[in-house]
Amino acid sequence: MKPFTYTALPARVIFGVGTTDRLPDELERLGVKRAMILTTAPQADQGRELADLLGARSAGLYTGAAMHTPVEITEEALARYEDLRADGVVSIGGGSTIGLGKAIALRTDAPQIVLPTSYAGSEMTSIIGQTEQGRKTTQKTLKVLPETVIYDVRYTLSLPAVMTVTSGMNAIAHAVEALYAEGANPVLSLMAEDGIAKMTAALSRVRAAPADLDARSDALYGAWLCAVCLGSGGVALHHKLCHVLGGSFDLPHAETHTVVLPHALAYNAPAVPEAMAAMRRATGSQNPAAALFDLSRESGAPTALKDLGMPEEGIDRAVEITLENPYFNPHPLERDALQALMRAAWAGERPSS
């Protein structure tokens, strides 16, 4: 066996149905007396329910979380945090809300408890992405890793069918790249393969029966495995492209991952035979990139960047930004090949084997 390094991130995970009821005890455990609750505007009702649950331990509610964690939103939320004299944050939502909680923790060392309502996975990572003046940058620091994550399957029951698929594909992307990222190792590869298998199978079941609690539980469990991979393994070309597209063109996060993933996987496939063998087992397909594309298309999820608002003339700019500061990638990054990848993703072409 090849030498490897595996670093487990310190996080407490509570998984199940109805686990939200344990939130007050978890805040007590962390010593948080006044928690500011973070949500987006559409999820404000869920935030208010948490405030009712916490009673006097709730300092207040902020509902302005936004995609890609704009710095100006963080500054507004931070001022609110200080005005409320809060000493911790509770984030309920997807990647936008979790990202805002991380941004506050980065600046204040505030303890965080996260209640994910999607499969985004940010809750299990020490990575934060922030957008300023049209550029999205990322950094890795344990200061932003949530202390406790409460997975309550009930929150995912109301995810619309298409959003379920795009959020699930976002999760799958974390595990796919963990199979061949710079920090890849046998432990993460086991988690990645099982996470991809659980999620792809669950997405098909959820599509047929959205309220199936067992299927939703499997999907959330798969998302957790994928998120652990993201937090410990690292990323490659796929995430670089999505960060560029999100930060520079303001494309929606999960939908962009859904469109780009099959093409990034096909690009790297020749350089990662062991990872592709794992992908074939996990997806049950000899062409995993096409299988992921088909899963999205059959579920009504987007398969083309042009349908997300990406201008065709922006392709060259996206490639240029990608090459300016590339992430590690197992296959060399070649300008012409990247342009071909981006054009296929823009047009919504099915990847070939």
Rank of each mutant, 00 (worst) to 15 (best):
T5F: 15
T7N: 13
L9N: 12
R12W: 10
V17P: 00
V17E: 15
E28H: 04
L30H: 04
I37R: 04
T40P: 06
A41R: 14
P42N: 04
L53E: 01
L54F: 04
G55N: 03
L61K: 05
A66T: 12
M67Q: 13
V89R: 06
P111S: 14
L115A: 05
T117L: 14
T131M: 06
T138Q: 13
K140L: 06
E147D: 14
I150T: 02
R154F: 08
R154N: 02
T156H: 02
V165F: 08
G168L: 05
I172L: 12
I172E: 02
H174I: 00
E182G: 07
E182A: 12
V187C: 01
A197V: 12
P210N: 14
A211T: 15
W224L: 15
A227H: 04
V228C: 09
H239P: 02
V244I: 09
P252T: 03
H253F: 04
M276Q: 10
L292V: 06
S299Q: 03
S299D: 02
D307R: 03
R317Q: 14
A318P: 08
L323P: 08
E324V: 11
E324P: 01
P326W: 00
N329K: 02
D336T: 11
A337T: 10
G348M: 05
P351Y: 03
